[in-house]
Computed example of a mutant assay.
Amino acid sequence: MLEDGFHDVPNGKIAAVVTSLEMFAKPPARPEAEGLDWTLERLPRPAAEDYLALYSAVGRDWLWFTRLVMPREALLATIRDPRVEVYRLEAPGGETGILELDFRQADTCELAYFGVSPGLVGGGAARWMMNRAVERAWSRPIRRFWVHTCTLDHPSAPQFYMRSGFQPFRREVEIADDPRLAGLAPLDSAPHIPVIDADSA
């Protein structure tokens, strides 16, 4: 357990506070705007390159890195597992979104990845996609639907998940190598999180 107070994060690393949220029953669908030109396409056996391009299109500004550092074989084993459902949001203008549901744990669905590309933030696409995520998750005989978010994500993410029916239950601190310094993300990604090189004094 961390004691109260400040704790140094080594140079070259990033740190985030992770909040996990869950629900135990299907909530009502949230209201949506009408006439939306969005579709959700399932990717049953995505190529690693296609998946990572989608993952990065949504997660670049928030320093999503977990799937970027996975060995290719492990990544494919995960995203092609029949108990994992990967969806791509198609929207006008080349904007997109990712929805990934993981049913590998008995009686449980994890909302493993969820987000929209920058041009869709704040325009209702996330709410539209969440309604479909909730519907799809609870179409299975699950007992629990859960998700985690962190302080690297959009600052409104925790409130969005709570408005969608999730309730927080755990808080953790995660420390990891900065993916920008490893060449896994452009150096100008997530400008709200300064890069501190491992060689900095």
Rank of each mutant, 00 (worst) to 15 (best):
residue 83 R to C: 04
residue 9 V to W: 10
residue 117 S to V: 08
residue 11 N to R: 15
residue 76 L to Y: 00
residue 123 G to A: 12
residue 199 D to Y: 12
residue 64 W to P: 04
residue 137 A to I: 02
residue 65 F to Y: 15
residue 118 P to L: 00
residue 201 A to Y: 11
residue 10 P to K: 12
residue 45 R to S: 15
residue 129 M to N: 13
residue 186 P to C: 00
residue 148 H to Y: 14
residue 99 L to N: 11
residue 197 D to K: 14
residue 115 G to F: 05
residue 195 V to Q: 11
residue 12 G to A: 06
residue 65 F to R: 14
residue 58 V to H: 10
residue 150 C to K: 01
residue 121 V to D: 06
residue 137 A to W: 06
residue 74 A to Y: 02
residue 7 H to Q: 10
residue 78 T to G: 04
residue 61 D to A: 13
residue 158 P to F: 07
residue 158 P to K: 00
residue 53 A to N: 10
residue 36 L to I: 08
residue 17 V to K: 12
residue 198 A to S: 14
residue 63 L to N: 08
residue 172 E to H: 05
residue 41 E to I: 13
residue 119 G to V: 12
residue 138 W to A: 01
residue 138 W to N: 05
residue 57 A to F: 01
residue 41 E to D: 14
residue 172 E to G: 06
residue 128 W to P: 09
residue 201 A to Q: 12
residue 64 W to Y: 13
residue 67 R to Q: 11
residue 103 F to T: 02
residue 80 R to S: 12
residue 29 A to K: 08
residue 86 V to E: 09
residue 29 A to Y: 01
residue 198 A to F: 05
residue 49 E to H: 03
residue 93 G to S: 03
residue 55 Y to T: 04
residue 124 G to E: 09
residue 117 S to M: 05
residue 56 S to Q: 15
residue 198 A to P: 00
residue 195 V to G: 08
residue 7 H to L: 10
residue 162 M to F: 00
residue 44 P to W: 01
residue 83 R to A: 11
residue 115 G to A: 02
residue 140 R to L: 03
residue 139 S to Y: 07
residue 148 H to F: 14
residue 11 N to L: 10
residue 145 F to G: 02
residue 179 P to N: 05
residue 120 L to E: 03
residue 181 L to Q: 15
residue 196 I to C: 14
residue 48 A to G: 03
residue 137 A to C: 03
residue 29 A to V: 00
residue 174 E to G: 05
residue 24 F to A: 07
residue 115 G to N: 11
residue 195 V to H: 13
residue 15 A to W: 08
residue 185 A to W: 07
residue 156 S to D: 14
residue 12 G to V: 00
residue 198 A to D: 09
residue 65 F to G: 08
residue 174 E to L: 13
residue 169 F to D: 12
